[in-house]
Simulated assay, not measured.
Amino acid sequence: MARTIATSTTVDLETLLEFVRPRHHLVLTTTRRDGRPQASPVTGGVDQDGRIVVSTYPERTKTTNARRDPRVSVLVLSDDFDGPWVQVDGECEVIDMPEAADALVDYYRCISGEHPDWDEYRQAMREQDKSLLRITPTRWGPVATGGFPARLAE
Protein backbone atom coordinates (compact mmCIF):
# COMPACT_ATOMS: atom_id res chain seq x y z
CA MET A 1 0.00 0.00 0.00
CA ALA A 2 1.39 3.39 -0.99
CA ARG A 3 2.15 5.78 1.83
CA THR A 4 0.66 9.25 1.88
CA ILE A 5 3.33 11.93 1.72
CA ALA A 6 2.95 14.90 4.04
CA THR A 7 2.52 18.24 2.29
CA SER A 8 3.32 21.81 3.23
CA THR A 9 2.12 24.58 0.91
CA THR A 10 3.05 28.20 1.51
CA VAL A 11 0.14 30.53 0.69
CA ASP A 12 -0.51 34.26 0.46
CA LEU A 13 -3.23 35.94 2.55
CA GLU A 14 -5.99 35.66 -0.07
CA THR A 15 -5.29 31.96 -0.63
CA LEU A 16 -5.22 31.44 3.14
CA LEU A 17 -8.64 33.07 3.52
CA GLU A 18 -10.04 30.98 0.64
CA PHE A 19 -8.79 27.90 2.49
CA VAL A 20 -10.27 28.97 5.84
CA ARG A 21 -13.71 30.22 4.63
CA PRO A 22 -15.39 26.81 4.19
CA ARG A 23 -13.79 25.35 7.34
CA HIS A 24 -15.55 26.14 10.61
CA HIS A 25 -13.86 23.73 13.06
CA LEU A 26 -11.15 25.68 14.83
CA VAL A 27 -9.01 25.44 17.92
CA LEU A 28 -8.38 28.88 19.41
CA THR A 29 -5.28 29.23 21.56
CA THR A 30 -4.97 32.13 23.98
CA THR A 31 -2.42 32.77 26.71
CA ARG A 32 -3.20 32.23 30.37
CA ARG A 33 -2.05 34.67 33.01
CA ASP A 34 0.86 32.34 33.85
CA GLY A 35 2.01 32.33 30.20
CA ARG A 36 0.86 28.80 29.37
CA PRO A 37 -1.44 28.16 26.39
CA GLN A 38 -5.19 27.66 26.77
CA ALA A 39 -6.89 25.86 23.86
CA SER A 40 -10.62 26.02 23.07
CA PRO A 41 -12.46 24.15 20.31
CA VAL A 42 -14.69 26.74 18.62
CA THR A 43 -16.80 27.34 15.54
CA GLY A 44 -15.57 30.21 13.40
CA GLY A 45 -15.68 31.87 10.04
CA VAL A 46 -14.08 34.63 7.97
CA ASP A 47 -15.84 37.99 7.84
CA GLN A 48 -16.01 40.34 4.85
CA ASP A 49 -12.82 42.07 5.96
CA GLY A 50 -10.76 38.87 6.09
CA ARG A 51 -10.81 38.46 9.88
CA ILE A 52 -11.47 35.17 11.62
CA VAL A 53 -14.56 35.54 13.82
CA VAL A 54 -15.70 33.46 16.80
CA SER A 55 -18.86 33.88 18.87
CA THR A 56 -18.41 33.60 22.64
CA TYR A 57 -19.44 35.01 26.01
CA PRO A 58 -17.69 37.77 27.96
CA GLU A 59 -16.92 35.58 30.98
CA ARG A 60 -15.29 32.71 29.07
CA THR A 61 -11.62 32.07 29.72
CA LYS A 62 -10.69 32.56 26.06
CA THR A 63 -12.35 36.00 26.14
CA THR A 64 -10.63 37.02 29.37
CA ASN A 65 -7.27 35.86 28.02
CA ALA A 66 -7.75 37.68 24.68
CA ARG A 67 -8.59 40.93 26.49
CA ARG A 68 -5.38 40.68 28.50
CA ASP A 69 -3.18 39.51 25.62
CA PRO A 70 -4.65 39.93 22.14
CA ARG A 71 -2.01 37.70 20.51
CA VAL A 72 -3.84 34.47 19.68
CA SER A 73 -3.46 31.47 17.40
CA VAL A 74 -6.14 29.57 15.52
CA LEU A 75 -5.71 26.03 14.24
CA VAL A 76 -8.08 25.61 11.29
CA LEU A 77 -9.07 21.98 10.73
CA SER A 78 -10.81 20.29 7.83
CA ASP A 79 -14.05 18.40 8.47
CA ASP A 80 -12.12 15.24 7.67
CA PHE A 81 -9.64 15.05 10.55
CA ASP A 82 -6.96 13.76 8.18
CA GLY A 83 -7.55 16.67 5.80
CA PRO A 84 -5.43 19.79 5.36
CA TRP A 85 -5.00 22.28 8.17
CA VAL A 86 -3.26 25.56 8.93
CA GLN A 87 -2.25 27.60 11.97
CA VAL A 88 -3.05 31.31 11.85
CA ASP A 89 -1.56 33.77 14.35
CA GLY A 90 -3.22 37.11 14.83
CA GLU A 91 -4.36 40.04 16.91
CA CYS A 92 -7.73 39.55 18.61
CA GLU A 93 -10.30 42.26 19.23
CA VAL A 94 -13.08 41.49 21.73
CA ILE A 95 -16.43 43.09 20.90
CA ASP A 96 -19.20 43.07 23.51
CA MET A 97 -22.85 44.03 23.42
CA PRO A 98 -24.39 46.23 22.26
CA GLU A 99 -21.69 46.80 19.59
CA ALA A 100 -21.41 43.07 18.95
CA ALA A 101 -25.00 42.71 17.60
CA ASP A 102 -24.23 43.64 13.99
CA ALA A 103 -20.85 41.89 14.04
CA LEU A 104 -22.62 38.71 15.18
CA VAL A 105 -24.92 39.01 12.15
CA ASP A 106 -21.80 38.99 9.94
CA TYR A 107 -20.47 36.00 11.93
CA TYR A 108 -23.70 34.06 11.34
CA ARG A 109 -23.74 34.92 7.63
CA CYS A 110 -20.18 33.73 7.01
CA ILE A 111 -20.94 30.35 8.59
CA SER A 112 -24.62 29.65 7.90
CA GLY A 113 -25.85 32.18 5.33
CA GLU A 114 -29.06 34.12 5.80
CA HIS A 115 -31.22 33.91 8.93
CA PRO A 116 -35.02 33.94 8.51
CA ASP A 117 -35.45 36.80 11.03
CA TRP A 118 -32.48 39.06 11.73
CA ASP A 119 -34.34 41.10 14.36
CA GLU A 120 -35.08 37.90 16.27
CA TYR A 121 -31.43 36.82 15.94
CA ARG A 122 -30.11 40.17 17.21
CA GLN A 123 -32.53 40.02 20.16
CA ALA A 124 -31.38 36.50 21.03
CA MET A 125 -27.74 37.64 20.91
CA ARG A 126 -28.55 40.59 23.22
CA GLU A 127 -30.45 38.34 25.65
CA GLN A 128 -27.53 35.90 25.72
CA ASP A 129 -25.10 38.83 26.13
CA LYS A 130 -22.85 37.38 23.44
CA SER A 131 -19.41 38.67 22.51
CA LEU A 132 -17.41 38.31 19.33
CA LEU A 133 -13.72 37.61 18.91
CA ARG A 134 -12.39 39.16 15.71
CA ILE A 135 -8.89 38.01 14.76
CA THR A 136 -6.79 39.81 12.18
CA PRO A 137 -4.26 37.38 10.70
CA THR A 138 -0.68 38.59 11.11
CA ARG A 139 1.22 35.36 10.36
CA TRP A 140 0.31 31.89 9.19
CA GLY A 141 2.04 28.65 8.54
CA PRO A 142 1.78 26.67 5.37
CA VAL A 143 -1.37 24.71 4.62
CA ALA A 144 -0.33 21.22 5.62
CA THR A 145 -1.40 17.61 5.48
CA GLY A 146 -0.15 14.74 7.57
CA GLY A 147 1.67 11.73 6.25
CA PHE A 148 5.11 10.33 5.84
CA PRO A 149 8.22 12.28 4.88
CA ALA A 150 8.87 11.98 1.14
CA ARG A 151 12.03 9.96 1.85
CA LEU A 152 9.84 7.13 3.19
CA ALA A 153 7.46 6.97 0.21
CA GLU A 154 7.37 3.74 -1.71
Rank of each mutant, 00 (worst) to 15 (best):
M1T: 13
T4G: 00
I5Y: 00
I5D: 00
A6W: 05
T10C: 02
V11R: 08
V11G: 06
D12F: 08
D12Y: 03
L13M: 11
E14D: 15
T15H: 07
E18Q: 14
F19Y: 13
F19V: 07
V20K: 09
R21M: 05
P22Y: 08
P22F: 06
R23D: 03
L26E: 02
V27A: 13
R32L: 15
R32Q: 15
R33C: 02
R33F: 08
G35Q: 11
R36T: 14
R36G: 06
P37V: 11
Q38I: 01
P41F: 12
V42N: 10
V42I: 15
V42E: 05
T43A: 14
T43R: 11
V46P: 05
D47Y: 03
Q48F: 00
R51M: 12
V54P: 01
S55C: 13
S55T: 06
E59I: 02
T64N: 09
N65I: 01
A66G: 08
D69M: 06
D69G: 03
P70E: 10
R71K: 09
R71H: 14
V72H: 07
V72L: 03
S73L: 10
S73T: 10
V74P: 05
V74E: 11
L75S: 11
L77C: 12
S78I: 02
S78K: 03
D79G: 14
P84I: 02
P84Q: 09
W85Q: 12
W85V: 03
V86D: 09
V86Y: 02
Q87P: 00
Q87H: 06
V88F: 11
G90A: 06
G90N: 05
E91M: 06
E93F: 03
I95N: 10
D96G: 08
D96K: 01
D102E: 15
V105T: 10
C110Q: 02
S112I: 03
G113H: 07
E114F: 05
H115Y: 10
P116T: 05
W118M: 06
D119Q: 12
D119H: 03
E120H: 08
Y121R: 13
R122P: 02
R122K: 15
Q123M: 04
A124T: 14
M125F: 04
R126W: 13
E127T: 11
Q128W: 09
Q128D: 15
D129P: 00
S131Q: 01
S131Y: 01
S131P: 03
L132Y: 02
R134T: 04
I135G: 07
I135V: 14
T136D: 05
P137T: 09
T138K: 08
T138I: 12
T138Y: 06
G141H: 09
V143K: 00
G146E: 13
G146H: 12
F148C: 05
P149Q: 04
P149M: 04
A150V: 10
A150E: 13
A153I: 04
A153S: 13
E154D: 15
E154S: 10
